[in-house]
Structure formats: structure tokens, C-alpha cells
Amino acid sequence: MTQGRLSTVGLTVAFGDRTALRDVSLVVPPRAITAVMGPSGCGKTTLLRAVNRLDDGVPGMVRTGEVRLGDEEVTAPATDVAGLRRRVGMVFQRWNPFPRSVFENVAYGPRLAGLRDLADLRGVVESSLRKAALWEEVRDRLDADARTLSGGQQQRLCIARALANAPEVLLLDEPCSALDPGATRRIEELLFELRADLTIILVTHNLQQAARASDYTAYLDAGRLVEVAPTRLLFTNPQDPRTEAYLTGRVA
């Protein structure tokens, strides 16, 4: 079974003179939550955006090395990037629903993929909203503008929207940094449910979140992968002095 197996080999990403990621080789365990943490500017977000190639259009971006998903090298020039992004969902730091109805937001990906039948679309929308633990809250307001939902609901809507594509991998870029503790907890619980059949990468600068909401943790510093280990192990017994310094608050 290669579905959801994600890895990078010698991944280096530079924007002009600035190298954001240096020679990162990381195997992301499938069907688990891997937290990626590190100080600001350590390359966490760049790593995430290399997986779905969202930085492809950025002027001056140079990428070497590989990102592999299953048996495929997704960084190959011939890769169908739109198809890749359907296999790899992404949730952003600031929730960004389209200014359309709840239904249309979730239906967007399937529609792009060619799903036209309304009954089919309804089915996908409902199951995606259920998976995102949002169905009960919005089932009566599917036609409401998505921006009338609360922040936490909008973020879960964005998760549902990503899930509607039935991805193998879900990338989350500090998804809770603008949410209150209650909404944060709901999303963390949701991620625990989702990992049963998804490879999840959770970028966070919140140590507590990494500690309580992930199975594995990777620590990045200055664009380099310092270490990766099962979360409990990394937090209790870091192998690298840089990781220890970060965990004990000696790094800004």
C-alpha cells in the first residue's frame, strides 16, 4: 500500500538569494499526524508548500531534490500539478472560504474534478462536512454565505472543502493560530479522527499543540531538518541540542 506515503529527498528550496529549505530528507508516516515545528522562518511553511507545489509560480523560486507521494515524484516537471493538489489538500493559517454558500465552498473541488450531478454533489458535501464535524452545525444553512460562520466553523469548512477532494494527504499550516482554545480543541479532535485514513502534516509554532495533537514531530531550524521522532520521544528525550534549546524556550 503506497497510498499517502509521502517523503522528501534532499529537498532544497530557495527564493532568489534566500535559501528557505536545505537538503531536507523526511519520511512522513502514512495515516498519522506529523507535526512540523521550529522558530519563525525555519522553513516549515516552505516545506508544506513544496508538497503541493503552491510556490511554483513565485518569481525566483528554485527547487532541487524530490518530493515523493506514493510511487510518484511529484516535483517532476511533467507532474499534473492540479491533479497533485486534488490528492494533497491544504488548510491555511487564515481561513479562506470563498464568498459563496457553505455548499458551494465544499462542492468546489468536486465540481472542478468534473462532478456535475447534483445528488452526487449533495452526497459529497454532506459526507465531507460530517468528516469535518461541521454537518450538525450547518445542515440547515448550507445556502448561507460561508463568511457568516464563526472563525472556528470557517476553518472546519475549509477542512471539509479540502476533504471533498478525497485527498491522501492533508497539509495544515498553523490552522489554529487565529482560533480560541475551544475552537482549537475541536480541530485537534477532528484531526485525530481523520488520521485513520489520511497522512496529515501539521505545521505549528505552538509546542503544546505539537505535543498533544501529533504522533510524530519534526523539528526544523534554519531550513534544516534537525530531527524527527515519535512526539513523546522527541519531547522527553530530544537527541539534538538545538531541539532541546527550542523545547526549553531558549530559542526565540
Binding site: A82, G89, R94, P99, Y108, G109, L112, A113, N165
Partner: peptide, 26 residues
């Protein structure tokens, strides 16, 4: 906003679909 463009792209929209669905409506 860039976030609207990236929302469409991250869901598998091509550049043209992003223009049609996220940029021009906005």
C-alpha cells in the same frame, strides 16, 4: 487577496479556473 487565489489553486484549480472562480468574482 492572495488567500482567495491560493484557496482555489490548492483545491486543484488551474490558473484559468482560479481567475474565473476566485479572482474575477472578487
Amino acid at each position: 487577496p492572495r488567500s482567495q487565489r491560493e484557496a482555489a489553486l490548492a483545491l486543484g484549480a488551474t490558473r484559468w479556473e482560479m481567475l474565473r472562480d476566485a479572482v474575477l468574482p472578487g
